[in-house]
Design a protein around this nucleic acid. Structure first.
Lengths: 353, 353
DNA sequence: GCTTGGCACTCCCTTGTGTCGACTGCTAGC
DNA sequence: GCTAGCAGTCGACACAAGGGAGTGCCAAGC
């Protein structure tokens, strides 16, 4: 790969057209195709010269001598950053998104999953969603419920809904009144706070005041910990079978590598989650990572579009679309952004105030 | 397909060996292979005659003239029903199952998913689990929780854990005391009952006695309905990428058809759920369906092993393994049965009494 | 009458060959 | 700087030949 010479207008147009055409056809693009299908005003020989220079500069590559050119990572990157024209949602997509969220669940986990289904259906790729971070949720309510002398239930509610619930078994008998008093004390102490402000120490303090047993204290601690940070990352993915339609995944090894990533939620989470930190402060803008930019060999022929979405000022989640590098970036960015916006609005609507 | 003549001992052995060998190698089995790898005491010519008769009777088929034989659905069926020797769990599998459940979650949805992960890992196929039916769960507790004048939370607890929870918004102000009184009334009325005995009429009666608003009544009704019968079937599947390793799924069309079935939970549920009814009364025995017995064209080259599992006397779920017809039935039946047993025990342990 | 060795036959799969077509790079001329 | 023309490269495809695995059948043997 040589020096990246600044692209003159014609080179830029040729590069953009090659990317566009390759995305559409999945076939290497030759000089003749370009002159025939697009009005370039010059002959194919000229295009050949230009394409040779674009290849020397690292924007295009040639699969083999007698084939046309396909974009390199750098070619896609330039296309996405500078050449492509932004698209907006079509009326139809817009309507489908609106309709979907009109009937969406109030339950966070369900919403997340439903959203990936919607987005994978619209985009024809694999869609992923990470639930909004919970640290900024407002504490709403905690209730310890007496089920029997040796069992109870604890429920923590935040502005995002039921954030933790668990059944507890105790080794010593517990009285219902004690649980009620503790619930009341916790509620009055924590009311108005944001979840990230409530640490184990705060729980301990309240429990100590009321003389709660260590068993009860531990249960409350665990519930609050789970409310802030669930055991497993809250993530959903769907539409893996869409990838089968893409010619680049007809190679079984690549397909297997990707399916493995999707089934292992942890790696999937890691793949997307850096967006949570990077973009936390910045404006919620779509972000595209192409091929090797994903820093995963299995994904070197993939691209990912990520869009953070806001849950009021109460947390940040991420939507993502994963597909072949040869993806319609403009449309997918519009889809992801539009869906993220509607998702944010929906979450706002179902927020507990 | 002709008359199914009763198999004499030698035919039975040959059929069993062909199935066994084909399961192991995925290659059509010829007469020479049989005489060389297995001690049959007769020449390959004799085997050829026998195999021709087995084919005439419908137990074997020949992919093409110059190939060996592979089992037909009927061949697999006979193998599974009468020829195969039952296997028991290996020490190693046994240990892995035990270890897994030792650390398993108490949360039903998590357990189900964890189980499919375990079973797909052990079996190298696609594993599916349907959560136990809830009708026989014992009602334990219902709690209406006041969050604010216009919002509340309702939680229904059964012997299986938290069966329903939902946040409710009201259009008229609600007083905390009313919710508490209603909770108490519902609890004392329904205590000791089984969920299937609690209908909307019963809820209405209690609400009417306490003069609860129609809004509150509807919320309670919905919560009880959801506790008995969730909106979506509770089902989990994992290990789809295992199927990629099987040569029969290297054909992309077949693969896509199967992935589609797996991603559509509804069809997956329908595929497995008849076991719930059929086996409800019978003893919890493994059941194998082979090829066309599945009554789905896309699955004509697949088999499914299903094993019901009991949650005490309180409900019935199903574990299933889906894979190519050419699956190691003995091992998979042992794995599914063993996992189902451990799952039942685990659920019993975490049951709320 | 069952079994067996032998043999002709079938058909898939692999390999090799040749043709075709797409595309390139280069050169000479405008 | 652009273009037409041309030779060269290489993959895709079709086709034929050969090898190999396996069969069915038959005649001979125990």
């Amino acid at each position: 790969m040589n020096e990246k010479l600044e692209l003159d207008k014609r080179k830029a147009f040729i590069l953009a057209t090659v990317v566009y055409e390759y995305i559409a056809t999945a076939e290497p693009v030759g000089s003749l195709t370009l002159t025939q299908k697009y009005n370039l005003g010059v002959s194919s020989a000229t295009i050949r010269n230009e394409m040779a220079e674009l290849e020397a500069s690292g924007y295009l590559v040639q699969p083999h001598t007698s084939a046309g050119r396909i974009p390199s990572d750098a070619g896609y990157r330039t296309y996405v950053d500078r050449l492509m024209q932004p698209e907006s949602l079509t009326k139809d997509d817009s309507r489908r998104i609106r309709d979907e969220f009109r009937e969406a669940s109030r339950e966070l986990a369900d919403v997340i999953e439903q959203t990936t289904r919607l987005l994978s259906g619209l985009s024809g790729n694999l869609a992923i969603a990470i639930a909004p971070s919970r640290d900024m949720h407002a504490f709403k309510h905690v209730q310890l419920i007496w089920l029997s002398a040796r069992t109870g239930l604890i429920v923590v509610v935040t502005s995002g809904g039921v954030a933790a619930q668990r059944v507890i078994e105790w080794t010593a008998d517990v009285v219902a009144d004690d649980l009620t008093r503790l619930s009341n004390a916790l509620n009055s102490r924590f009311g108005g706070r944001v979840m990230e402000e409530i640490g184990p120490g705060d729980v301990d303090a309240v429990c100590a005041e009321l003389g709660a047993s260590t068993e009860i204290r531990d249960a409350v601690r665990l519930a609050f910990a789970a409310a802030r940070q669930p055991d497993e990352p809250e993530i959903a993915a769907s539409g893996a079978q869409n990838l089968l339609d893409q010619p680049e995944f007809h190679d079984l090894r690549k397909l297997r590598a990707i399916l493995r990533i999707v089934e292992e939620q942890r790696t999937l989470y890691d793949l997307i989650a850096d967006e949570l930190n990077v973009e936390a402060a910045a404006e919620a803008a779509p972000h595209v990572r192409i091929g090797h930019e994903l820093r995963a060999d299995e994904l070197s022929e993939c691209s990912v579009v990520t869009v953070p979405y806001r849950f009021g000022d109460r947390g940040l989640g991420v939507l993502a679309i994963l597909g072949p590098r040869r993806m319609p970036y403009g449309r997918l960015i519009a889809l992801a952004s539009g869906t993220a916006r509607s998702l944010g609005e929906h979450l706002n609507d179902v927020e507990i105030r």
